[in-house]
Nucleic acid binder design. Sequence first.
DNA 1: AGGCCTTTGAAGCAG
DNA 2: CTGCTTCAAAGGCCT
Length: 481
Amino acid sequence: MPQLDSGGGGAGGGDDLGAPDELLAFQDEGEEQDKSRDSAAGPERDLAELKSSLVNESEGAAEGAGIPGTGAGARGEAEVGAEALGREHTSQRLFPDKLPESLEDGLKAPECSSGMYKETVYSAFNLLMHYPPPSGAGQHPQPQPPLNKASQPTHSVPQLSPLYEHFSSPHPTPAPADINQKQVHRPLQTPDLSGFYSLTSSSMGQLPHTVSWFTHPSLMLGSGVPGHPAAIPHPAIVPTSAKQELQPYDRSLKTQAESKAEKEAKKPTIKKPLNAFMLYMKEMRAKVIAECTLKESAAINQILGRRWHALSREEQAKYYELARKERQLHMQLYPGWSARDNYGKKKRRSREKHQESTTDTGSPKKCRARFGLNQQTDWCGPCRRKKKCIRYLPGEGRCPSPVPSDDSALGCPRSPAPQDSPSYLLPQFPTELLASSVEPAPTSTGLSTVLSLPTPGPPQAPHSALQNTQVQQQESQRQAA
DNA sequence: AGGCCTTTGAAGCAG
DNA sequence: CTGCTTCAAAGGCCT
């Protein structure tokens, strides 16, 4: 139900809105063609506008829409912005009175949900739009609105925050003096964003993504006083160790006398800014969980991935724009940071460990090369890296179907998989199902229902671990019956 | 405790 | 330049 009144000319498509893959996926979906026509009025023009007016468009749009907290008079409207913040925070929540409708739709529509985009699609956008105003808003003790906000209107028009004023301001205020030395360990010529990121602890609880900026105890900037207006934690900064996550970073100040190695170990990791889809996931995850009674992130992400493709281009553009702002903010906060800083950190350890203990041949590509397999057609049995193999195998990045269920048929001259291999790494593909490309029949569980429902998106990999599990369960039930 | 699952997008890396 | 790899979030599951 990529729905919506995409009319209006649409946000236009283009390289700035998403990766080519993403756009291609849109075109692949038949129902998206209508939307393409809808936006055919001037997608290129809109795209160009999007490209050229990164900052100005926000101000202009904000002012044009009467959005407080932006434009020349933004600071003067700080109080209005704060007031709007309180409203908007609540408007982003799932309205109790709307829930039944959503649930009802969810029963009819694929992925156990539908009709939820309209009232939520802009939430993530609003999220960043509604940082508190810069002046004196840091202490604004905006009372936490109650959860039940049925009376609050849903804002379909994203409201811009002073954040954009900050971005567009030619004379940004200087950053706290100690921000880089204590937190970031890198030169920081960032303007003072405290006004934008200071929230009361209560209001933070309603902001899925940005919330963590403020609540992270180890990342409080400025005076170190919790709730201090100058405290500007950023979600991208996380302690290197998860155990350090809850440690007030000030505590590590005493490590000045410690060795450099220890300092290095305690240096927080600056994480990558979230992309559009990640922002969308953060925004929608809670709703999917509520509607589908799911908790497994893997399944939820599958749903969100489909919904993402079902979004209209206009709606996606909101998140792309939001992600772009995130990247801008990230760049301003950490000028010297690069994704390279975190590159390889996550996998290096496990890879090294794995290479030491096993005969892992490395990437599927290298694996196939080593065993003389066809890079395009052969299943990478030796690596047992199902996920990676999905990318390498034909079928538009999908695993060939049917997939042999035994090692001998994998085409990989390898020894059997170790007995202790995780179940999801082992081939568990019921040939009968895979051969007919039939998705698992729906079961009573929400998970299987969700996963088995038809969707407009591309077919799911037939060897999904979750699906495998379901298929096994279904077969067991069938046999028992 | 730590890694995997799953998704898309951005960016780094290697050939 | 192209294609592959890694990381970002999330929480249950598994070893």
